[in-house]
Design a binder for these strands. Structure first.
Length: 343
DNA sequence: GACTCGTGGCT
DNA sequence: TAGCCAAGAGT
């Protein structure tokens, strides 16, 4: 235990200095860290890959480069800019947090983990990561990478999520007082490139001399995870109402699935087959033979596509079909729109 | 602790 | 292919 405390940070930081990734939100050695960019990147990276985040981060920071501009942004613009990234509460909370920084912190991002933790969208991980990376505070940063590295390093065999307290305690023992931000990023770089979920590259790992999981064999079996429940199948109908080259869009409620997002009208998503009961208007609806499928985190969805044209005006937001790709639709609706337009 | 909440990439 | 997984947070 104490052997790891002294050897792991040194070995890991040496490895990081030689192999650290260059990322748009990451300050190079000697550069000044921008807390706004660190925070934004950490939120975007929640459950989201570096490849998916990179172009979004660049576009976002070009449009809203700081807390003040984001706090003053139009909500619909923000949600449209987030479309396709998923977990849309993140976008809603980004605006809430930016407004809170401007209104309650004089525009200055708080620098302690405890203060950061009070802002919307900053949970245990993100508050610790921002405190460490942006402000150099010593904080125990535990994400899925760190969980995996630590579970192997200490050969923790308790299944997740029950193992979380033990993993955090172990991570605490190897977190250094200095360079805590680099240490956190090094752990994540190691987890993404060396200590991977499958086929870890132990022969290249700077922590192999300290790794109990390697010493005991089969480190790839760690961490142990509880099995997940099967996803149910749900069904529904998407309504494509067209008038003079424009299609009717709605705005979904702020809470719940795809909350606050612009969308095509849809009925409830249940175990019932597609039907016209929830149509947004009286019209000569035709059900297409095509079906659109989409997987969410906790259920799979198969949608019928109901289409109709109207002449009379209907209340709602009408969007030109030709520019529908700029409407900021979540992926499931973008899929449906493409299927309909392909016909 | 158990759910909800997206998406795309990988094997 | 079908499942697994990723820089998690909120309730």
């Amino acid at each position: 235990m104490n052997a790891k405390r002294s050897s792991v940070p040194v070995a890991l930081l040496d490895w990081y200095d030689a192999h650290r990734r260059v990322l748009p939100w990451r300050a190079r050695p000697g550069e000044t860290v921008d807390p706004y960019r660190v925070w934004l990147s950490e939120v975007m990276l929640q459950q989201t890959t570096v490849a998916a985040v990179t172009p979004r981060f660049l576009a976002w920071t070009a449009r809203w480069p700081d807390f003040a501009s984001l706090a003053a942004a139009d909500d619909a613009d923000v949600m449209a800019a987030w479309a396709g990234l998923g977990y849309y509460a993140r976008a809603r909370n980004l605006v809430k947090a930016a407004k809170a920084v401007v209104a309650e912190h004089d525009g200055v991002f708080p620098r302690t983990e405890a203060e950061l933790r009070t802002l919307p969208g900053l949970g245990a991980y993100t508050a610790a990561a921002v405190a460490a990376i942006a402000f150099g505070e010593r904080a125990v940063v535990v994400d899925a990478n760190v969980e995996r590295v630590v579970a192997r390093l200490f050969a923790i065999t308790t299944p997740l999520p029950a193992a979380r307290p033990a993993i955090r305690a172990a991570a605490d023992t190897i977190t250094p007082d200095m360079r805590a931000g680099d240490f956190a990023q090094a752990m994540m770089d190691l987890g993404s490139s060396i200590c991977t979920t499958r086929n870890p590259k132990c022969l290249l790992c700077p922590l192999r001399p300290d790794c109990d999981g390697f010493a005991q064999g089969e480190p790839e079996r760690l961490p142990v995870k509880a099995k997940k429940a099967a996803k149910p199948q749900r069904h529904g109908t998407i309504f494509w109402l067209e008038r003079d080259g424009q299609v009717l869009l709605v705005r979904r409620p702020d809470t719940g699935l795809l909350g606050g997002m612009r969308a095509l009208p849809t009925g409830p998503w249940t175990d019932q087959p597609p039907g016209f009961e929830a149509a947004p208007a009286q019209a000569d609806w035709q059900m297409l033979d095509d079906r659109v499928t989409h997987g969410f985190t906790h259920f799979d969805l198969e949608l019928g596509l109901a289409v109709a044209r109207v002449e009379a005006h209907q209340p709602g937001e009408w969007w030109p079909v030709e520019t529908l790709d700029t409407a900021g639709l979540p992926t499931v609706f973008a899929k449906a729109a493409q299927a309909i337009r392909a016909r």
